[in-house]
Design a protein around this nucleic acid. Sequence first.
DNA 1: CGCCGGTTTGAGTCCATTCAAGAGGAGTGG
DNA 2: CCACTCCTCTTGAATGGACTCAAACCGGCG
Lengths: 258, 258
Amino acid sequence: MSAPAPTVAEPDAESVLAPLLHKLQLWKPLDAADRAAILALPYTLKSLPPTGHVVREGDRPNCSCLLLSGVAFRQKLTSNGARSILAIHLRGDVVDLQNSLLHYADHSVQALTKIEVAFIPREAIIELALAFPRVGMAMWYDTLVDGSIFREWIANNSRRDATTSLAHLLCEFGVRIEAAGLGDRLRYELPITQDQLADALGLTSIHVNRTLKKLEGLGLITRTQRSVTVTEWKRLADAGDFSEEYLHLPPAATHSVP
Amino acid sequence: MSAPAPTVAEPDAESVLAPLLHKLQLWKPLDAADRAAILALPYTLKSLPPTGHVVREGDRPNCSCLLLSGVAFRQKLTSNGARSILAIHLRGDVVDLQNSLLHYADHSVQALTKIEVAFIPREAIIELALAFPRVGMAMWYDTLVDGSIFREWIANNSRRDATTSLAHLLCEFGVRIEAAGLGDRLRYELPITQDQLADALGLTSIHVNRTLKKLEGLGLITRTQRSVTVTEWKRLADAGDFSEEYLHLPPAATHSVP
DNA sequence: CGCCGGTTTGAGTCCATTCAAGAGGAGTGG
DNA sequence: CCACTCCTCTTGAATGGACTCAAACCGGCG
């Protein structure tokens, strides 16, 4: 690990971990030393094709994994062979703090699209958190927000019908894509199959298909190949019982939508 | 909810916050200074009757809340008037880190039984985490484990049928009660109504009732008034697709069961 | 004793599933 | 450029697990 120098050590070193820095600063300001320490984290780059595994359930990983580009998801398998998708992750998300810090992977993390990731040794993260407590706090906050989204998913998959929960999920994607600077909540690309949507909602892909058509019929969304475009935000949010407080985004992270 | 005024440590201060210390040391060793700092946290005691609110959805709490005795739960309401129970908490759990640190309560926390809680000002927790990074790490770990349980609940409520998910939940209660030193996984008291079980599983109380009777008929459990006793651990765990890795308990925390 | 919250049971209904089959696109290789 | 294949999407019909509605049963408690 190199010393946190104010000058650029490597031309692109800073830019590679920049998404992490951006994410951690969403909630709490960090000073120059904090920022330098984050950017000085050691890492290994890797590229994975769709369905490639970042980590498998049951592994004992010793690296965390920062998602640099593309979309990834967490999943768990049940004994009856069904799959449950637990979370969807975008650029800047640290997708494997949980498994790495806890020493045991209670779920898998896989690429949804082609992704690029940076593997960061667990020990480096622990040292960072101990030496720079503000950074540790920031990562803790990130974990708290993840937990908030998990809670919303429990309610979404337990107490909302298919139409409502699908609309809700589409809203969440829109807001998070916007917050990550990857698009507009009103018009974003969603590179996810109906099969995967079904596993994220606890439904069957057949019913997801029918529900998508229903939302389309209601004029809330339009669809093209394997992607969904939201056309009526307000009505979709109402249909999905969606309000974004649970994402705990700072005001600056989202644009106001009339 | 208003902030209870921090009180000066009393003679029995150490024993009051001891459950917190015990919980935080489950995963990582802490040194004497760390332990002393935890026990020196300011707090206000409060007792709540069943259904009493620790925090309400939409509040902006400035205190976290440590559960000293009794059972509490987190819940969210959906627009159709349904309730989703997101977590059950036992002695030693810090039940409101999420809402307090994130400044906005995305869900409510309520007493299931009569409970005793210690309110701890948010600022004191933040200062503790910054001044004693190992303690900050320990709290972060605790949040990570909470997240792991949330994930399991997503899968449980999405991809398991009523019989399996109920059996799973009964197993989780048993292991956690045992780990908290409150009883034996083979024979524990469960002060929860079928209505509440239903809201935790995304079912109706009527169906929970029938499913409980089914498990009883299979000889996996026996029931008395408002409490459940597990009689056949192994078979219940099999029926519930349960393995306790997701609880991330240290080996010492659970007794081996033949 | 009579209320009251929780439990139990029955009968009918419905949302989502299963089963089955066809249509559409994207990529591959001849 | 055209098969050919694979994967996903789409649609229909029948089934089923969980729900709704409704009523009776309990046990604790004022």
